[in-house]
């Protein structure tokens, strides 16, 4: 039995044939069939690689913000804004009170559930992030907007997914630590959106900017069992399990202090680099985490974030090495 559970964080780059087909095909039925195929291929690829928690690489989704903004009334797209370098995301402004239009994740989840052998983990963009990434031209305050999103939209989506059989959800809240002075608001919004759920609640927070120093003290107040965080992006490529070799993982000490009863999703792959981490490097990142946190059963292994910015062959090579690294770490511990 494996000591460490493994998972992907969400997105994979869309296959080129899918993009081409979606551009040229005029039949909605055919497009749906192509999306089904892409979803199935991603799911089976991730299972084949050996991950324990899987999804469909978000094959049907446009982007983590754009998709919800498209299906929540009150959002109006205004254009693209830089994320970094020449990566952009479509940004919307809020021009009316937000209201529910459709559950934009239900269909994809039902498909994944039907074909998954491993446990599906559904990524859902959280209310705080949706608020923070939008221009607010309607609500009097950020809190009013975020609370409406949490209560009227996200909570309803999650409950419907749960009714459809969802056992694990990953609430993506990359904006969580963007405003350190607003952590209390983040906690309030996060807990509101998961109110009444029985599914296991994971959250993924990445590129915090403050190495999670504002997140750690509020973890005890958050109704999430699992925190998938990004570390490899800041780490060295040197082997070793001491502090000097693992500068990217400094936040683990604070995690031990504040969140010893929670699970960590340990980011061991830098998703913004084509460098394929060798298994030995993955091993040492995991062993360092064990050294700091103890109990391996609370350590899940994953990439820093979704791998959608990498070519598919790079993404799969990284994930394969991640699994090999996990096995090396297990062998070292046993």
């Amino acid at each position: 039995m494996s000591l460490f559970k493994t998972q992907e964080i969400g997105s994979l780059k869309k296959p080129s044939w899918l993009l081409e087909y979606l551009k040229t095909s005029t039949s909605e039925e055919d497009k749906k069939a192509a999306l089904d195929d892409a979803s199935f291929i991603n799911l089976k690829m991730l299972e084949h690689i050996g991950l324990d928690f899987v999804y469909d690489g978000e094959a049907r989704r446009i982007e983590m913000y754009e998709l919800p903004a498209k299906f929540i009334r009150g959002f109006e797209f205004v254009g693209r804004v830089r994320s970094w370098d020449n990566k952009y995301y479509k940004k919307a402004r809020i021009v009316d009170r937000v209201s529910f239009e459709k559950n934009y994740h239900l269909e994809e989840f039902i498909f994944v559930k039907e074909y998954a052998i491993k446990t599906p983990k559904v990524p859902v963009t959280g209310a705080y992030t949706l608020m923070d990434w939008s221009y607010n031209e309607y609500y009097n305050s950020r809190e009013d907007l975020a609370m409406d999103l949490a209560k009227q939209i996200i909570n309803r989506i999650l409950k419907e997914l749960e009714n459809a059989g969802m056992k694990v959800v990953q609430i993506d809240e990359p904006a969580a630590t963007t405003h350190p002075a607003e952590m209390e608001l983040f906690v309030k919004i996060f807990n509101e959106q998961v109110k009444g759920l029985n599914a296991k609640i994971n959250t993924h927070i990445c590129y915090s900017g403050d190495e999670y120093s504002s997140l750690m003290p509020v973890i005890p107040d958050l109704k999430a069992k699992h925190f998938a965080l990004e570390f490899a992006n800041r780490d060295s490529m040197n082997l070793g399990v001491d502090d000097a070799a693992r500068p990217g993982y400094r936040a683990l000490k604070a995690f031990r202090e504040y969140a010893s009863d929670r699970e960590i999703g340990l980011g061991v792959l830098d998703v913004h680099s084509d460098y394929v981490e060798p298994p030995e490097l993955v091993r040492d990142r995991i062993l360092y985490a064990v050294k700091i946190l103890g109990d391996p059963s609370k350590i899940y292994v994953n990439p820093d974030c979704g791998l959608r910015t990498r070519k598919r062959e790079i993404a799969f090579a990284k994930l394969k090495n991640m699994i090999k690294g996990v096995r090396l770490a297990e062998a070292a511990i046993r």
Partner: peptide, 14 residues
């Protein structure tokens, strides 16, 4: 080197 968040925005810098 790696990406870091540019203050309290959703834009990142190397």
């Amino acid at each position: 080197n790696g990406l870091n968040r540019y203050f309290e925005t959703n834009t990142f810098y190397k």
